[in-house]
């Protein structure tokens, strides 16, 4: 009896506090998303009467009807989806080819190439030289390829893949080589199919990167190539201007807050929805990467 009550005092108190702390963590992590979603479904003029914390006061879909009728957001969504799909598939193939190549000890200059890739992880020319190269040198400004080509390769991802390729047994390759297959056929027909877990992981990293990036759209995109994130940036910035103006003028423009909330939900929606199903791939990727590094 004595034993048990002492345990209750020490470890159980700790357990209870830990449990409360973790619930608090869950709350502060998820509530922002919940709040934004709930507010976006509230009637815009009614939202001006004060924030809604738990449930829409006046349920309405008018925000979504308003935002989705804007041709610009549909165009932005098209650009974002295209760059996410094309960008991640091409980057994965491009990076995998390199990683597979340097996983073979017989490659001439292998150590030199690995060194070259390592250097890029720690040193770069920085914002301006890269900008001059892409905008003035390669004249990619306003071209959709500006989202794809500069993001084709990432040394960190290459090293994650490298450690995976090293684990593939070389026996299948040898037998294929005896049958007369060359490196390229072996890479596409043999290596890629058995590497789907790592390819999926890297593709997801790239996909999230493409989905979320807006700075390259700001630098090189122009009006025609506006992405979803950039559309949201504009909606945030205009809402601020309007909110300031609104305090002097009328209540009409303040519903730009509702427009902003709705745009936020639309831009984050795919990631939040896909996340629970995909998160184990992300974690696997960082684990392989961190064990290496």
């Amino acid at each position: 009896m004595m034993q048990k009550s002492r345990r209750l005092n020490g470890d159980s108190v700790f357990d209870i506090f830990n449990l409360i702390f973790m619930c608090f963590i869950i709350l502060i992590t998820l509530y922002p998303f919940y709040y934004v979603i709930v507010s976006s479904f509230n009637e815009p003029i009614d939202l001006l009467n004060g924030p809604v914390y738990l449930w829409p006061r006046k349920f309405s879909l008018s925000n979504y009807a308003y935002v989705l009728q804007d041709e610009k957001i549909l165009n932005a969504a098209f650009i974002t989806v295209s760059r996410t799909i094309i960008g991640s598939v091409s980057a994965v193939l491009f990076t995998a080819a390199f990683a597979y190549g340097i996983s073979k000890p017989r490659l001439l200059g292998r150590r030199f190439f690995i060194g070259m890739a390592l250097v890029t992880m720690y040193f770069s020319g920085g914002l301006i030289p890269t900008y001059i190269l892409i905008a003035h040198g390669l004249k990619l400004q306003g071209n959709f390829l500006v989202f794809i080509i500069p993001n084709l390769f990432n040394a960190f991802n290459a090293f994650v893949m490298l450690s995976f390729f090293r684990g593939i047994s070389s026996e299948i390759e040898e037998s294929a080589r005896i049958d007369g297959a060359n490196d390229i056929i072996i890479f596409f027909k043999l290596i890629l199919p058995v590497s789907t877990p790592i390819l999926a992981t890297i593709a997801l990293f790239n996909g999230v990167f493409h989905w979320n990036s807006w700075f390259d759209a700001l630098l090189y995109g122009g009006r025609k190539l506006e992405t979803l994130q950039q559309y949201l940036v504009k909606s945030i910035q205009s809402a601020n201007v309007n909110a300031k103006a609104a305090s002097y003028v009328s209540t009409l423009t303040v519903s730009s807050t509702s427009v902003r909330l709705t745009t936020m939900v639309i831009t984050a929606f795919p990631i939040v929805i896909a996340y629970p199903f995909l998160q184990r791939y992300f974690v696997k990727g960082i684990m392989i990467g961190s064990l290496k590094g």
């Binding site: 934004v36 902003r260 936020m264």
Partner: peptide, 12 residues
């Protein structure tokens, strides 16, 4: 989640 979304929430 993108920083743009996070800053949007900071404003809200």
């Amino acid at each position: 989640i993108s920083w743009v979304f996070v800053v949007g929430f900071i404003y809200v």
